[in-house]
C-alpha cells in the first residue's frame, strides 16, 4: 500500500505528507498512448474523483481500487496494472463506466488489461478466473453453444481444484446441485450443435484476440 501510494502520488491517508516531499516517478506516457489507440477508452480524461471505486460492488475483493488502476495506467505503471487481482475479479458490472463523469470506460479497460496480461504471458493474479474464461471459450468451440454439463467439470480439472474440492466438501455440494438440476430437467446430457460451428471455431481461433474487429 505504501509503495503504491508512493508511486501514484495518492492523496489518501497519512502517508500523504511524506509522499509530497518524495521525488515522484517520471511518468511514462507511452503506455497511455497505446491504451488510447486501442480504445476509445478515454483513460486520460480521468480526474481521480473515485466515483468508479465508490460504486464498485467488488472493491472489497480488489488489491488496487479501480481509480488507482486508471491512474497507474496513465503513469505507465504497466506491471502494477497487469499483475493486479483487480483486473481479474472485476465482475464487468459496468457501474463504473456508467457513472464516470468523464466518460472513462473503466470496465472496458479492465477487459483490455486482461487481454494485455494474457498476451504478455503474465501469470494472472487470479488464475481461476482466467482458466474459467478460457474453458468457457474452448467449450464453445465444440458446438458453438455452451454445453453446460461439460463446462464446470472441465473447469475444475483445468484449474486443478478437483482434489481440494473433494477434501473441502465443495465437490459434494456441486454434485448435489448438478443432480438436482438434472432431475429438474435443467441440465442436458448432450450439447446442442450449431451447423455453422466451423465459423465459430475460426472466430475463436483468431490469432490476435484483442485486435479490433474488422
Amino acid at each position: 500500500m505504501a509503495e503504491e501510494a508512493r508511486l501514484v502520488g495518492s492523496s489518501y491517508g497519512a502517508e500523504n505528507a511524506e509522499m509530497v516531499r518524495q521525488p515522484v516517478l517520471s511518468p511514462d506516457f507511452d503506455f497511455l498512448y497505446k491504451v488510447e489507440a486501442s480504445g476509445p477508452f478515454n483513460a486520460s480524461h480521468c480526474f481521480q474523483c473515485r466515483k468508479c471505486t465508490n460504486g464498485c460492488p467488488v472493491s472489497f475483493a480488489m488489491d488496487i481500487f479501480p481509480d488507482r488502476i486508471i491512474r497507474l495506467a496513465i503513469l505507465g505503471q504497466t506491471a502494477e496494472v497487469l499483475n493486479s487481482r483487480t483486473i481479474w475479479i472485476c465482475a464487468s458490472c459496468e457501474t463504473c463506466s456508467t457513472r464516470c463523469p468523464n466518460g472513462v470506460r473503466i470496465a472496458e479497460l479492465m477487459d483490455y488489461f486482461k487481454e494485455l496480461a494474457v498476451e504478455a504471458g503474465i501469470r494472472p493474479a487470479l488464475p481461476a478466473v482466467a482458466v474459467f474464461y478460457r474453458t468457457f471459450l474452448d467449450n464453445l468451440k465444440l458446438t458453438g453453444r455452451v454445453f453446460e454439463a461439460g463446462l464446470l467439470p472441465t473447469y475444475w480439472v483445468r484449474s486443478r481444484q478437483v482434489v481440494s474440492m473433494f477434501k473441502s466438501g465443495e465437490m459434494r455440494k456441486n454434485v448435489e446441485q448438478a443432480v438436482k438440476l438434472f432431475m429438474k430437467k435443467r441440465l442436458s446430457a448432450l450439447p446442442g450443435a450449431v451447423r455453422g460451428r466451423g465459423e465459430i471455431r475460426s472466430i475463436l481461433r483468431s490469432s490476435r484476440p484483442h485486435g479490433r474487429s474488422q
Binding site: 464487468s92 477487459d111 483490455y112 486482461k114 487481454e115 494474457v118 482466467a130 474459467f132 474464461y133 478460457r134 468457457f136 471459450l137 464453445l140 458453438g144 453453444r145 455452451v146 450449431v194 455453422g196 460451428r197 465459430i200 472466430i203 475463436l204 483468431s206 490476435r208 484476440p209 484483442h210 485486435g211 479490433r212 474487429s213
Partner: peptide
C-alpha cells in the same frame, strides 16, 4: 450461436 458472454469480452474482444 453463443454470444460469447463474459468470457469472450474479458479475454477475446474480437470474438
Amino acid at each position: 450461436n453463443c454470444c460469447g458472454a463474459t468470457a469472450a469480452h474479458s479475454i477475446n474482444r474480437r470474438a
